[in-house]
Design a protein around this nucleic acid. Structure first.
Lengths: 214, 214
DNA sequence: CGATTGAACGGTTTATATAATAGTCAAATT
DNA sequence: AATTTGACTATTATATAAACCGTTCAATCG
């Protein structure tokens, strides 16, 4: 399922298709154009991909794999506290979505079309991001900044609360800065909620002041 | 702008149009049908409404006015604490949106079409709901359950955090109960965030236990 | 004279015909 | 035998013509 299973020819096909997808969009790219770019016949494309939509799916998988890698990099920042990593995670996710929406419209259009026909891809992607988020929550729990018992459930709740800032349907309504300020406000509130729960569980007042300092 | 400014004839037009909008949808309703229902000519409709879209706008305004009234009723429940009212508000808003999406698909379609051409209506509607929400926040601040200084900003943040549960784009993804549980989780976290801020501001531990009890 | 009509206009949707494309497979190629 | 081909089919998209509908307004009505 990941992009690594592709042999050389499949990679060439995907690369040719990607170029055309980005430039002309999914609908305006034909199988014979892709075949010509690869110096092969249309029939032969089907030995490497079951359908055109599967080429698009692989294209999106690669794009989103890169996104998750970027998000995962947040985990490694040793100079950032778990609370700061939570903020970094969502601000980066917002920035990635906002940028892609604004300066790669064809890729956005392709994603929309694919996801309407392959909803499972969206679920997998959300789960992959959820695993990163969950690791941040675990780090915070180890550090006793957070006090979380249901990691999966809390991850889902965080994704819900930040949904507005990751759903492109809204990106035209406001400029980046205004939306980023609102997102920071949501994260502030979430972090205070976590601080409250940590204080309740571990019971010490220094937890409160620690969270306040953040 | 509100529905009360309408005279008898305009009300009859709106009523005939509403019946057809709900039954056949906006696109499948023609001005001559509306005129015939009211025993008048098409030309005469334009003495009461500038355009067909304005009839649709009035239709939506009436619907949404009722919704805001229902939400405002939450404010009056004297047996509910501010925290409980906040929960009631969002659960009711979610239920209203979910129900309308599922059993009045034509009304939903009409709303979408109108809002794409009259975005200002959505802004007004969000502001009207925001005023109710803001009153809940004030009640909570008076009761020292919350400690909010920027009511407008906090209102916006709450609307952002609950956006997923009010945006119909997602309603096919999950069943009502599952989504309601998630929404409750988001509200739990928000309320704990408010409790934390209240404890920080008013400084007493009994605030923490009070919020815990909720 | 104000209120109302309905034919006329222009823009848009719909229906139809035509062209292009995704996907298949028997034959050709290596 | 495994790979590749390209003509072929069924489906989808595009182009064109016809019907429709929102809107206007000069003529009619009360």
């Amino acid at each position: 399922m990941p992009a690594e299973h592709l042999d050389e020819t499949a990679t060439a096909i995907l690369s040719a298709a990607s170029r055309r997808f980005l430039h002309y969009g999914y609908g305006k790219t034909t199988m014979s154009e892709i075949a010509k770019d690869c110096n092969m016949s249309t029939g032969n494309l089907y030995r490497y991909f079951p359908s055109k939509l599967d080429i698009a799916e692989m294209f999106v998988r690669v794009l989103r794999g890169e996104q998750v890698e970027n998000l995962r990099a947040v985990l490694q920042m040793s100079d950032r506290s778990p609370a700061e990593k939570l903020r970094d995670f969502f601000l980066l996710k917002f920035k990635i979505a906002y940028d892609r929406f604004h300066d790669k419209p064809k890729a956005y259009e392709l994603s929309s079309e694919l996801l309407s026909q392959r909803p499972q891809v969206a679920v997998e992607w959300e789960n992959a991001e959820g695993r990163v988020l969950s690791e941040i929550l675990q780090m915070g729990t180890v550090a006793k900044t957070f006090a979380i018992d249901d990691f999966a459930g809390t991850t889902k709740i965080l994704q819900d609360a930040a949904y507005r800032f990751t759903s492109p349907a809204v990106f035209h309504e406001g400029e980046f800065e205004a939306l980023a300020i609102e997102l920071n406000g949501v994260i502030d509130l979430i972090l205070d909620g976590f601080a409250f729960r940590a204080a309740r569980k571990w019971g010490s007042e220094n937890q409160i002041s620690k969270a306040q300092a953040n």
